[in-house]
Design a protein around this nucleic acid. Sequence first.
DNA 1: GCTAGGATTTACT
DNA 2: GTAAATCCTAGCA
Length: 246
Amino acid sequence: MTHPPRPAEHPTEAVADPTGTARSRLDRSFFLRDAPEVAPDLLGRVLAVDTGEGTVELRLTEVEAYFGANDPGSHARNGRTARNASMFGPPGHLYVYFTYGMHYCANVVCSPDGTASGVLLRGGEVLTGHEIVARRRATARRGVEYARGPARLASALGLDLTHDAADLCAPGDDAPMRILHGTPPAPDLIGCGPRTGVGGAGADTPWRFYIEGDPTVSPYRAHVPRRRARPAGDAPNGPAGGARPR
DNA sequence: GCTAGGATTTACT
DNA sequence: GTAAATCCTAGCA
């Protein structure tokens, strides 16, 4: 059985100090640990993305860890594919995937190169760039909904497949994407539980971490196998048996 | 080649 | 609370 790791005290980072540590960037070594260890440590960190419209900064409030080819909830459970290749890549990079035909979700790659390990970014609080996010997330009724949920978060940051494998730890101050130290929450404010939407053997693994009481944390939903609308003998509509239209 | 299902969100009842 | 939207991936015949 897997135990939820305690929020780790990474040697290169400490609680933000008044001298500006919160604005400094996380080192790549931060991500050189396994995803279940990195995940709770990412809470309170700030993901900054420069776009043509300006900079959006997001404080992470909810994450999920996916680790190893044996993780039944992971995209890597069936080994390396073109889709998940960046998940096997070097740490500190982004793994962006397309899902449900319309949404993008983003992970931060962890562990040494060659290990399938990542932390799904599920929720965050927009710190700067509200106007930019408001345009992208026009359907959000409140600010807390800008990045509550993995697809909303990706949308708020303007992430898509062009950002797959992007380096979050690229040297230089002009790097388009980076993760800042931010202000990690107190350890007793970090909650954990089973991962959202993961069923089967992976459903019991408490690798979802979130900041207790934060309004930008998405509600937990247990895994529910979707049933595809099918012709069911008397197909009312739809191409019976045919391949999907392109 | 075909089919089932998906780390989701949103609109509608 | 429920169902639809929509495209990709991977298993299977």
